[in-house]
Simulated scan of single mutants.
Amino acid sequence: MSEVFVEGFGVSVGKKSERLVVKRKGEVIFERPFFEVERVIVCTEGATVSSSAVHECVKNGIPVEFLSYSGKPYASLVSPNLGGTVKTRRAQLLSYEDARGVMLGRAFALGKLRSSANNLKYYAKYRKSADRAAYDFVYRRVDGIEALARQTEDIEGEKVGEVRGALLNVEGRAANLYWEGVRRIVPEFPGREGRGASDLVNSLLNYGYGILYNRVLSAVTRAGLDPFAGYVHTDRPGKPSLVLDLIEEFRAPVVDRAILGALGMGFKVGMDGEYLDEKTRKLAAARVRERLAVRVTHRGKKQTLENIVHAQARSVASFVRDGTPYKPFVGSW
């Protein structure tokens, strides 16, 4: 199965017989049977996608995703028949008002904190001999994050609205510690900045998060969950709060590990004005996709990180619907 990444101006995506065809200025640059295509990602405003290609994609369960030049997802096309059962969505909505919402919110936060701590351990272990001061600096941040994780375990309430402030507080404090550690390891990193970032490191991270976001959105939708009904992130029109909750388990072990690792190996970054240039976007996307294809041990067996994203979404559905215990994913180091 392959992922079709559409970049550049003058590109068209169409259907010919049972094949997906990508052309640039009338010349075929990619052609593949639909049954061999996993997803289509359009990362340019200068492309056209035919209705026949869209129809064939949704018929075959192939998501068509759209990213801005900064990596922000702005649309995703999926089949309306992939949404699972009404029972799951009813249970999801009801869980917001009882202890299930608290348990999920706490689990998402614990996954984020423990994965962040493990990421810093991963970066620090290569500096223990070469730069002891950096190693000690990073491990003080690790200790701080792990202490906050222990505090998170003790957060209790009858419904998630009662504990949201406490969860966001520990997440925010842990994030400050985490990015302090990253800044010591990546000297050119100015500190974390989300929307509107113009520096190279944050631009790469934001672009990678955009790719991951679409993976989580696809997983949540396929699990039969409502992506807009989350727990820790508040409900707002057009805000897929459940996606933003679940993605926290995967930012550090997927995107941060891929992007910061690439920078550590001399990854060359180019900018086109305030955005990453086309070559850099392609390379960054390739790094994130490679990371998603890495196999790690999860629930006693080797699985790709991409499959684990889907497994976690299904676990959320099983928890709210059937009461099956939910355990957050924690990246290893």
Score class of each variant (00 low, 15 high):
residue 318 S to N: 12
residue 135 Y to A: 11
residue 60 N to F: 15
residue 258 A to F: 00
residue 251 R to D: 11
residue 234 T to M: 12
residue 169 N to E: 15
residue 135 Y to G: 11
residue 282 K to Y: 03
residue 66 F to R: 00
residue 16 K to G: 14
residue 51 S to E: 08
residue 92 Q to T: 03
residue 18 E to M: 10
residue 87 K to M: 11
residue 203 S to T: 04
residue 319 F to L: 10
residue 134 A to P: 06
residue 17 S to G: 14
residue 202 N to C: 09
residue 326 Y to N: 07
residue 142 V to A: 04
residue 90 R to V: 11
residue 331 G to P: 08
residue 323 G to K: 13
residue 225 L to Y: 00
residue 202 N to Y: 03
residue 185 I to K: 07
residue 12 S to N: 03
residue 151 Q to H: 15
residue 269 V to E: 07
residue 180 E to A: 12
residue 21 V to W: 01
residue 231 Y to I: 00
residue 106 R to M: 01
residue 96 Y to T: 09
residue 134 A to M: 07
residue 47 A to W: 02
residue 122 Y to V: 13
residue 300 G to E: 04
residue 201 V to F: 01
residue 9 F to W: 14
residue 283 L to W: 09
residue 17 S to D: 11
residue 220 V to I: 06
residue 239 K to D: 04
residue 73 P to R: 05
residue 312 Q to G: 15
residue 213 Y to V: 06
residue 93 L to H: 10
residue 151 Q to E: 11
residue 249 E to K: 00
residue 54 V to K: 09
residue 62 I to N: 01
residue 167 L to F: 07
residue 312 Q to T: 14
residue 112 K to Q: 06
residue 287 R to T: 06
residue 131 D to R: 04
residue 273 G to N: 06
residue 199 D to R: 10
residue 295 R to K: 14
residue 249 E to G: 00
residue 108 F to A: 05
residue 110 L to D: 05
residue 71 G to W: 01
residue 116 S to M: 04
residue 303 Q to Y: 10
residue 77 L to M: 08
residue 244 L to Q: 08
residue 302 K to L: 12
residue 266 G to R: 04
residue 196 G to W: 05
residue 269 V to S: 11
residue 161 G to A: 10
residue 185 I to A: 05
residue 238 G to S: 03
residue 100 R to F: 03
residue 282 K to A: 05
residue 333 W to G: 07
residue 234 T to A: 11
residue 214 N to S: 10
residue 237 P to Q: 08
residue 84 G to H: 00
residue 170 V to K: 04
residue 236 R to K: 13
residue 258 A to Q: 02
residue 148 L to I: 03
residue 240 P to G: 01
residue 208 G to T: 07
residue 217 L to Q: 11
residue 273 G to F: 02
residue 75 A to Q: 04
residue 18 E to T: 12
residue 128 K to H: 13
residue 191 G to N: 12
residue 245 D to I: 02
residue 92 Q to L: 02
residue 198 S to F: 09
residue 75 A to L: 07
residue 156 E to S: 14
residue 306 E to C: 14
residue 45 E to T: 15
residue 62 I to M: 01
residue 135 Y to D: 11
residue 227 P to Q: 02
residue 260 L to V: 06
residue 161 G to H: 06
residue 23 K to N: 08
residue 89 R to A: 06
residue 207 Y to K: 06
residue 114 R to L: 10
residue 2 S to R: 15
residue 262 A to I: 01
residue 38 E to P: 14
residue 4 V to S: 00
residue 271 M to F: 07
residue 178 Y to M: 06
residue 166 A to N: 10
residue 271 M to H: 08
residue 310 H to R: 15
residue 322 D to W: 09
residue 198 S to Q: 11
residue 52 S to L: 12
residue 220 V to Y: 00
residue 44 T to C: 05
residue 226 D to R: 02
residue 147 A to C: 13
residue 201 V to N: 00
residue 42 V to T: 08
residue 221 T to C: 14
residue 142 V to C: 03
residue 233 H to V: 05
residue 84 G to Y: 03
residue 160 V to L: 09
residue 45 E to A: 15
residue 152 T to H: 00
residue 119 N to R: 08
residue 78 V to P: 15
residue 220 V to Q: 02
residue 95 S to V: 09
